[in-house]
């Protein structure tokens, strides 16, 4: 099944709505709590990234009996150096965003930690596409 959501740049108040809605559906699908938590964390971080950096974005979530696939597309500044962006603590977030408690440079690394497959395509000046896949019933602890 496929679910679609949209996010607006700067709308931190609504970041988390998509992950919350996806959580409710995964609970109904009898998917285990550990997997649900990994999906919720990954998607929430991605939502915050769009709110913090882009003008707007779309989220597509595909669920089947093997995995949860999430595609997050935004039109924004793009990521010039993906390798650098994957480093914990690296952030290009504005002072304004940091003041709100976001932009600690943990977003992408946290997604990476919680998912089974992460693919980032980005064109500077145009936008970013995140492909996240989380396999069902894979015991990958979220606790560190």
């Amino acid at each position: 099944m496929t679910l679609n959501y949209s996010i607006s740049g700067g709308d931190f108040a609504s970041a988390g709505n998509a992950s919350s809605a996806v959580k409710s559906i995964l609970k109904q699908l009898n998917i285990d709590n550990g997997t649900i938590k990994r999906v919720v964390i990954s998607l929430y971080e991605a939502e915050v990234n769009v709110a913090a950096h882009a003008d707007n974005g779309t989220i597509t979530v595909d669920i089947d009996n093997v995995s949860v696939k999430m595609v997050i597309c935004d039109s924004g500044p793009g990521i010039p150096d993906i390798e650098l962006a994957m480093k914990e603590g690296f952030s290009t977030a504005s002072a304004e965003v940091r003041e709100m408690g976001f932009g600690a440079g943990m977003g992408l690394p946290n997604i990476k930690r919680n998912c089974d497959l992460l693919n980032i395509k980005s064109i500077p000046g145009e936008g970013t596409e995140l492909n996240i896949e989380i396999l069902l019933n894979q015991a990958k602890p979220t606790e560190r």
Binding site: M1, S24, I25, K27, Q28, L29, N30, D64, N65
Partner: peptide, 21 residues
Amino acid sequence: RSMVKLDDNITEAIRKMDKVE
């Protein structure tokens, strides 16, 4: 004792969820 799950079997639950939508 979850009351929210549509089915114990994930494939079946997804089918039911599609129907709900």
